[in-house]
Simulated scan of single mutants.
Amino acid sequence: MKLLSLFGSLLLVLLVSCDGSTSKTLISKNQLGQLTPKTEIKDLKTILETDSIADFDIETRFGKTEEIEIFDSKGKVSLIVEPKFKNDTLLTIDEIQILDSRYKTEEGLGIDSNFKAIYKNYKIDNIQNSINSVILNINEIGAYIVIDKKHLPSELRFDSEIKIEANQIPDEAPIKYFWLKFKNLD
């Protein structure tokens, strides 16, 4: 009986320690914590109750709404939400730029990761070469990640036309930008 009681206590401790704090910061396909493609912009303050949200104008200018900055408890920008229209009036989330290292995938990939963490854990579906960076598309988690070309070998830095392969990107190259793109589930 004591063994059963001890097991129950351990199970309770495990459940309490997994109270969702990691699920609130988990990056996965079509989800960032509790945010999903169906999340309405008006609900951000309720869902992200421990963060503060910059005032934003829901009115549009030329069919675009402003980006919405989400601040952590220390006043640092942790997320930038880009809204989209749905049914002409309802605003939902189009994509989120992740700036806070608390947000990670199950494999531990986050803004503070390097290329090795991407290459080791995910299939890179496409590598786009731009003037100053390479953009990695990872469909598995619905992300696109930017790496600054200053971390690439010199023969790849200045040619935006050359095809860049994953094996040409150094393992230690840090992530510059991390975006999560939400797909419409309707």
Rank of each mutant, 00 (worst) to 15 (best):
Glu49Arg: 09
Phe56Thr: 00
Ile80Val: 15
Ile58Arg: 13
Leu44Asp: 03
Leu48Pro: 01
Asp72Pro: 01
Phe71Cys: 01
Leu48His: 01
Lys45Met: 06
Glu67Pro: 05
Thr60Phe: 11
Glu40Ser: 10
Lys38Ala: 15
Phe62Thr: 08
Ser78Leu: 02
Ser52Gly: 04
Glu82Tyr: 15
Ile41Gln: 02
Lys45Ala: 15
Thr39Lys: 02
Phe62Gly: 11
Glu69Ile: 05
Asp55Phe: 12
Lys38Cys: 08
Ile68Trp: 01
Thr65Asp: 09
Asp43Lys: 14
Pro37Leu: 11
Thr46Lys: 15
Asp57Ser: 12
Asp51His: 10
Thr60Glu: 15
Lys45Arg: 14
Leu44Ser: 04
Lys42Met: 10
Pro83Ala: 04
Phe71Trp: 07
Glu67Ile: 05
Ser78Ala: 08
Lys74Arg: 13
Ile53Cys: 04
Arg61Met: 08
Glu67Asp: 14
Glu59Pro: 00
Lys64His: 12
Phe56Gln: 02
Phe71Gly: 01
Asp72Glu: 07
Ala54Asn: 07
Ile58Gln: 10
Pro83Ile: 07
Pro37Met: 07
Phe71His: 10
Pro83Lys: 05
Phe62His: 13
Ser78Ile: 01
Glu40Gly: 12
Ser52Gln: 11
Leu44Pro: 04
Thr46Val: 08
Leu79Lys: 01
Glu67Lys: 14
Ile47Phe: 05
Glu69Lys: 15
Pro37Phe: 06
Pro83Glu: 08
Lys64Gly: 00
Val77Pro: 00
Thr60Pro: 09
Asp72Phe: 02
Lys74Pro: 05
Glu69Trp: 06
Thr60Met: 12
Glu49Asn: 14
Lys42Arg: 13
Ile68Ala: 03
Phe71Tyr: 15
Thr60Ser: 15
Asp43His: 14
Glu49Ile: 10
Lys38Phe: 12
Asp57Phe: 06
Ala54Phe: 07
Leu79Phe: 03
Arg61Ala: 09
Glu82His: 14
Ile58Leu: 09
Ile41Gly: 01
Leu48Ser: 03
Glu49His: 14
Ile70Val: 15
Val77Met: 02
Phe71Thr: 02
Lys64Phe: 11
Lys76Gln: 10
Ser52Cys: 08
Ile41Pro: 01
Glu67Asn: 14
Asp55Ser: 10
Lys64Met: 11
Ile68Tyr: 01
Gly75Thr: 02
Lys45Trp: 06
Arg61Glu: 10
Thr50Cys: 06
Pro83Gln: 06
Ile68Leu: 04
Ile47Ala: 06
Asp72Met: 04
Ile68Phe: 01
Lys42Leu: 11
Arg61Asp: 12
Val77Thr: 03
Leu48Val: 04
Pro83Phe: 05
Val77Phe: 00
Phe56Gly: 00
Ile53Asn: 03
Thr65Pro: 06
Ile58Pro: 09
Leu48Glu: 04
Lys38Asp: 15
Asp51Gly: 04
Phe62Leu: 13
Lys76Glu: 04
Glu49Pro: 00
Lys42Val: 15
Gly75Met: 05
Ile41Tyr: 02
Asp51Pro: 00
Asp51Lys: 08
Glu82Gln: 14
Gly75Ile: 07
Lys42Ile: 14
Ser73Thr: 15
Lys42His: 09
Glu69Met: 09
Ile53Ala: 03
Ile41Ser: 03
Thr50Arg: 12
Asp57Leu: 11
Ala54Arg: 08
Leu79Asp: 03
Ile68Lys: 00
Glu69Gly: 05
Thr39Asp: 13
Thr60Tyr: 10
Glu66Phe: 11
Glu49Cys: 09
Glu66His: 09
Glu59Asp: 12
Glu40Asn: 12
Lys74Phe: 13
Thr39Asn: 05
